[in-house]
Structure formats: C-alpha cells, structure tokens
Computed example of a mutant assay.
Amino acid sequence: MTSAHHRFAAVIPVGICTPGLRGADPLPRLLVQLAARAGSEATVLRATSRPWASALFQGRRHAVTLRFGGRDAASACRRFAEGIEEAEWKLTGHFVADITVDSVHPDEDGKRLELSALTIEDW
C-alpha cells in the first residue's frame, strides 16, 4: 500500500518505475498521470497493486483512493471523473485495459474518490 501527497514522484524507488522494464509495476507511472489529471488540490490517500493474469494476458489490478479538497472539491472531482474511461495513459511496456470510478463519497475535507484500473503488459 502506498499513501502519498500528489507530489510523491520523487520518493518512488527507481527500480519499480524504470521505463520499458517489462514486468515492472506500472502503478507509480499511472499515479503520476492520475495526480496530474486530478490537480494540485488532490491527494493520493491509498494505492495498491496486485498481479492479474488471464489465459492470454498478464498485468496488474490497481486500486487508488484520491481526496479532492478545497472550495472547489466537488467540481474538481467531477472534472477528474468525466471521461476517465476514454482517457489516454502513457505506460511504457503496459497499457490501461480498463479504468473506472468505483465510488465518490463526501469526507471532512472534500470528496473521496475510489477508482480501479487494469493494466496489461504490452508485448
């Protein structure tokens, strides 16, 4: 489990986000892009990743929780979620096969959004 502010990229160990490393967990690179989409008032509260495989593909399942704060939290959360299923993500060696907002809840500081994603190794 990872918990970090949106400016977390500097603390990610280099070995897990080396571009082009087949099999490396793409979650850190996905989090950087999600944080950029979410904006400066958003915080990554939780991010997990676990292996996934089918008969033909292998990849990882990801669960991410974001908190949107500030006066504009509701509209920032709405803008983030709008069109996320069609968004383009750049993950060298992987692609996002599915991404969806699972739930949005109010919390003491704004809105809490939970999403899940499936990334597949791009052979």
Rank of each mutant, 00 (worst) to 15 (best):
D107R: 09
T2V: 11
P19K: 03
D98W: 08
R29K: 08
A47M: 03
V44S: 13
P106I: 06
H94F: 14
D109Q: 15
I99F: 05
G39Y: 13
F68S: 05
S103Q: 13
P19S: 03
F68N: 05
A35S: 15
G93I: 07
G39S: 10
W123I: 11
I16C: 13
A4I: 06
F57C: 14
R78T: 13
R61A: 09
R67H: 06
D122K: 15
T100E: 14
K111R: 15
I12G: 05
G15Y: 11
T43C: 10
A97I: 04
L21C: 09
E88S: 14
A9Y: 07
A4T: 05
F80C: 01
V44N: 08
R37A: 14
S49M: 04
V32H: 04
T119P: 06
R79P: 05
P13N: 02
A74P: 00
E88Y: 11
G23N: 05
L31G: 02
W123C: 14
E121W: 02
L91P: 00
A10G: 09
G70Q: 00
D109A: 14
T100L: 08
A117C: 12
A76N: 14
R60F: 08
T65R: 09
L66D: 00
P28I: 00
I120V: 15
T2Y: 10
R61I: 12
L34T: 02
I84V: 14
A47E: 02
V14Y: 13
T48K: 10
D25Y: 03
E41T: 13
W89V: 01
V14T: 11
P13C: 01
G20E: 05
A42M: 06
S40E: 15
G83N: 00
L45G: 15
L66C: 00
G15R: 12
A63Y: 06
H62C: 01
P26S: 02
P28W: 00
I16K: 06
E121S: 07
T18D: 06
L56Q: 13
T65Q: 03
V104R: 15
L45K: 11
C17E: 10
L66I: 01
H105A: 15
E85V: 02
V64W: 00
F8E: 01
S103H: 03
A24W: 00
F95D: 04
E114H: 07
A38H: 07
R78W: 14
H94T: 00
A42L: 07
V32F: 09
G59W: 10
P13R: 02
R112I: 12
K90E: 15
L118F: 01
W123N: 14
G110C: 08
T48Y: 09
K111D: 13
P26I: 01
A53C: 11
V64M: 01
V32Q: 11
A97L: 10
D72Y: 05
G15V: 07
G70I: 03
T43L: 12
A97Y: 07
I120A: 11
A97F: 08
S40I: 13
R71K: 14
C77I: 00
H5V: 12
L91A: 10
V64I: 07
